[in-house]
Amino acid sequence: MPARERRRRGFREVVADDVDLLPLMNLFVALIPMLLVSAVFLNITVIEMKAPGDEDAQARADQAREELALSVTISAERYVVEGNGVQTVSVQRADPAAAAQLAAALAAIAGEHPENHDVMIVSQADTRYEDIVGVMDISREAGLPGASLLAADRALN
């Protein structure tokens, strides 16, 4: 029988039944690195600030003297919340619940003065940028989105 004879001789016809994917692979291999380079894996956001002109800064400083003038001073050991007609609150930074205490103090003041949305963040020369951003976050979440940065007697923003 011819079939048996074929098996005996070890002859087998190989038929390629797969689709040729190599051209598509080449395309993918070119596309994927290009997209990987332009892909964004970090969620980058921004905190918007407006730097005032000289006149604006003066006007704001005059206004702050008359109004609440809420400020958070960041020192090496503590956060101090002060303002006109506001009881001064001091929070030890070493306390694990410092952020929560500061948030509660600011939220209470924001609740008492709903017309006020501003807070001045007073930093020392060596205050870390990360700590300032942390206080800005706490202030924003407490209902005080208008943060200004101050150092010594100079208003930046």
């Binding site: 980058i44 956001t45 923003n157």
Partner: peptide
């Protein structure tokens, strides 16, 4: 930056 006329400043941070 403010001195050079860049009044709109955004601090770039890593969002949650």
């Amino acid at each position: 930056c403010n001195h050079s006329g860049y009044g709109d400043i955004a601090l770039v941070v890593l969002g949650a």
